[in-house]
């Protein structure tokens, strides 16, 4: 298979990668390539230059911090799904990572690549929203923190600016929260027709704080604020679960396609999926 020729750079240090991106604004950064290569094969992307992040040491690894964990952008899904620290501190992230693609994809695909690509049906964005994650972006001018709730803007569109790249994800300590990722995968592609990630702080049988991330149904992953509010201050009983689930699409434009899932079907499936997720943790 023949692709449009491109220049290839393989920086070893983040500083060099950022300098390269500043010097070549037309370049695309290459992480695991699980989304970018298919786009290039379909001629939907034809970058003149690829900056391969595969050898950039600063983008590797998972570290425990005093208030949570920091996950390097080049961390592979397989590692996320099996890492002891992630499993203990942020099980929702490990669980969602285990749902990405298939084993071959999980061995190559990265958290940074998935989030920066921002496929509206990807699994990890929902988990980032439920986890209150913060995206660490860097450019040659410095770095900044972007809350996950502000990061996803539209289909394949994020808050990242030209010259910026995603370098890490910070997840607050979620140990003790009730977490679950419930997904209805498309039978052929494996992408989420609906995916719901929940993280609830529960004390004395009452939901203190609720976070619900939804993927697959709208132009980008979003937080279901109305459903969260319906849970907070309440017990996880069938009436509350039904009420919250009915609000999962509140304020969102639900996508439909003629071939597989209409907007009406997705809206219904979302309600059922959130209800199942909440039942799992009640």
């Amino acid at each position: 298979m023949s692709m449009t020729p491109f220049r290839y750079a393989r920086p070893m240090a983040l500083r060099d990668a950022l300098a390269d991106l500043t010097e070549h604004p037309e370049a695309r950064v290459l992480a695991g390539g699980m989304s970018l290569l298919p786009l290039m094969k379909m001629d939907l992307a034809a970058p003149e230059r690829l900056i391969d992040l595969g050898r950039v040491q600063e983008l590797q690894g998972i570290t425990e911090t005093p208030d949570g964990i920091r996950i390097g952008a080049m961390t592979r899904h397989f590692e996320l799904a099996s890492d002891e620290v992630v499993g203990r501190c942020a099980p929702i992230v490990a669980q969602a990572a285990a749902h990405v693609g298939d084993p071959q994809v999980r061995h190559r695909g990265t958290i940074g690549g998935s989030l920066a690509h921002a496929d509206p049906a990807a699994d990890l964005p929902a988990a980032m929203l439920a986890a209150d994650a913060v995206i660490e972006a860097a450019s040659a001018d410095g770095s900044r923190m972007i809350p996950a709730a502000d990061f996803f803007v539209g289909p394949l569109v994020t808050e990242l600016r030209p010259g910026e790249m995603l370098v890490a994800v910070r997840i607050p300590m979620l140990q003790g929260r009730r977490q679950h990722y419930e997904k209805v995968p498309h039978p052929a592609s494996g992408y989420a027709v609906v995916g719901v990630a929940i993280s609830l702080a529960v004390a004395g049988g009452v939901v203190q704080e609720a976070r619900i991330g939804v993927t697959g149904v709208a132009g980008h992953a979003y937080r279901a604020h109305a459903a969260e509010r319906a849970l907070e201050g309440e017990g996880l009983n069938p009436g509350v679960i039904a009420k919250a689930s009915s609000l999962a699409a509140e304020g969102e434009e639900i996508l439909g396609d003629a071939v597989y899932a209409s907007a009406e079907y997705r809206r219904h499936l979302l309600q059922v999926t959130l209800s199942r997720a909440l039942q799992r943790v009640s």
């Binding site: 298979m1 390539g33 290569l37 298919p38 397989f78 071959q104 994809v105 061995h107 190559r108």
Partner: peptide
């Protein structure tokens, strides 16, 4: 590790 050789340069 098993990976797809058609999705890698």
């Amino acid at each position: 590790e098993p990976v797809r050789s058609c999705l890698q340069f």
